[in-house]
Design a protein around this nucleic acid. Sequence first.
DNA 1: TCGCATTTGTGCTCACATTCACAAAGTTAC
DNA 2: GTAACTTTGTGAATGTGAGCACAAATGCGA
Lengths: 204, 204
Amino acid sequence: MKYRKIPDETVRRMPMYLRALSLLEQEGQQTISSRQLADRLHLKPPQIRKDLSYFGAFGTRGIGYPVVSAAQQIRTILRLDVRQKVALIGAGRLGTAVAAYPGFSVFGFDIAAVFDKSPAKIGKKIGRLVIEDMQSVDALEARQIRLAIVAIPAEEAQACAERLVRAGVKGILNLAPCYLAVPKRVKVVSLDMAMALGVLPYYM
Amino acid sequence: MKYRKIPDETVRRMPMYLRALSLLEQEGQQTISSRQLADRLHLKPPQIRKDLSYFGAFGTRGIGYPVVSAAQQIRTILRLDVRQKVALIGAGRLGTAVAAYPGFSVFGFDIAAVFDKSPAKIGKKIGRLVIEDMQSVDALEARQIRLAIVAIPAEEAQACAERLVRAGVKGILNLAPCYLAVPKRVKVVSLDMAMALGVLPYYM
DNA sequence: TCGCATTTGTGCTCACATTCACAAAGTTAC
DNA sequence: GTAACTTTGTGAATGTGAGCACAAATGCGA
Ligand SMILES: NC(=O)c1ccc[n+]([C@@H]2O[C@H](COP(=O)([O-])OP(=O)(O)OC[C@H]3O[C@@H](n4cnc5c(N)ncnc54)[C@H](O)[C@@H]3O)[C@@H](O)[C@H]2O)c1
Ligand SMILES: NC(=O)c1ccc[n+]([C@@H]2O[C@H](COP(=O)([O-])OP(=O)(O)OC[C@H]3O[C@@H](n4cnc5c(N)ncnc54)[C@H](O)[C@@H]3O)[C@@H](O)[C@H]2O)c1
C-alpha cells in the first residue's frame, strides 16, 4: 500500500490488538486470522486487516497472522518494545489503586515513581515505591521518565500538567475530569469515568 | 433543523457540556456563548452549536445560552434529571476508589450498592455501604438499580455482565480490560487505562 | 426607530473512517 | 501438480462527523 497517514483511530486500536495477541501468545496459539481476531474484539475483519496493513504486510494469505511476530511488530510500532517508565501524580484513592495495578505491564509500562503534595503522604510507601514530594517532579528527565498519569483533583491538574511538561514529560494519561492545555508536542489522553457513565441513561 | 439521527459523538459530548454548565451555574454566570464554551472545552464553536441544536434551539441569538436552563435541558435529554442509582461490582482496589468517588454526583448518580464475591469482604462496610454477596445482584430490578460499574478481573467480567443483564441492568460502565458481549438493548461503555496509556509512546 | 454588533442555527462541503468486494497469494488434499 | 479452499491486502464505495460561511434573530445605543 502506498504511503498514507495513519489514522488516529487505527493507532488507538493497536493496543487492543497487542493485548489480544499477547493473550494468544500465552495460550500458545501460533497464528490467528483477521476473522477470529475480529470475533474476539467485536470488530469487522477488514478493519483489522486494513489497520495492520498500514504498518506493512505481516500476515500470510491462506493462514492469518503469526501471533508472536505480529505482537512483536506492534510493540515496535507503538514503542512498547522497550520498557517505559511512568510517573504517577497523586497518591489518593485512585492513585493508590493505579499504583498497585499490574495491568500496565502487559504493555511494558513500569510505574517508576509516585508523587503527592500532601506532607502526610510524602515518605510513606505504596507497594515498593516511596511517595515523593512535588519538587522531585522537576527531575523526571534525568530519571528517563517521559510519561505520567495524573490522578489529582481537577482544579490542580492544569498546573500539574504544565509542571510535567516543563520536566520533559511527553505523554500524559489524565484521570482528572478536565481538559489539559499542553503544547502540541505533548500528547494527552483523558479518561473521565463520570462522563462515560453520563451517557448510559440516554440509551436506556 | 429537520429531523436527523443524533450522532453518537454528539451524545458522547453532552455530559461534557453538562459538566461545564454545572460549573458555570455554581459560579453564578447567567449565559455563555458557544465561543466561550468552546474555549473552555477546547472545541470549535460550530461543533457546540450543532450538537445542542440537535435537541432543539435553546440559545438566544446575540447573547448565547442561558446557563441554568440549558443545563436543565441537557439533564432531561440525558435522563439525568432524576437521580440514577448505580451498582458497583467489585470492592477491590479500584472498586474502593470508585465507591468513595464524589464525582459521579455532578451527573446525579448515586452508588447505591456494592457487591463482591469474596467472603472476606462481604458484610464489611465501604463508606456508608455494606458490601453484599453476588446472589443479591439478582434482586437489582426490585431496588430500581439499572446501571452498574464493573470493577472485577477481566476473566470474571463476561459472566458478571450476563448476570447483570439478567437482573435487568440496562447500562454498564466496564472498567475491566475486555470486551463485554451483551444484548443490543444494553449499552456498554468501556474504559481501559492500560490501553489509553498504550498509545502515548507512539506519539512521543 | 434604525443601524450596528453579536451570536445562534443550519445547509453545504470536505475530511476522515469504515466496509465492501475482489485479485493475489498462499495452503491443503489427493 | 493441480484444483479447491482460505485468507490477506487494498482500491473503491459508502457512511459519518467536523467545520465553514452565512442568513436569521436578537440586543443595544443613539
Ligand atoms: N476515586 C475515583 O474513583 C476516581 C474516579 C474517576 C476520576 N477520579 C479523579 O481522579 C483524581 C483523584 O481522585 P481521588 O479519588 O484519588 O482523590 P483523592 O482526594 O483521594 O486524592 C487526591 C490526591 O492528590 C493529592 N494532590 C492534590 N493536589 C495535588 C497537587 N497539586 N500535586 C500533587 N498531589 C496533589 C492529594 O494529596 C491526594 O493524595 C480526581 O481528579 C478525581 O476526579 C477519581
Ligand atoms: N487498580 C487499578 O488501578 C485498575 C486500573 C484499570 C483497570 N483496572 C481493572 O479493574 C478491575 C479491578 O481491578 P482491581 O485493581 O480493583 O482488582 P482487585 O483484585 O484489587 O479487586 C478485584 C475485586 O473483585 C472481586 N471479584 C473477583 N471476581 C469477582 C466476581 N466474579 N464477582 C464479584 N466480585 C469479584 C474480588 O474479590 C476483589 O475484591 C480489573 O479488571 C482491572 O483490570 C484496575
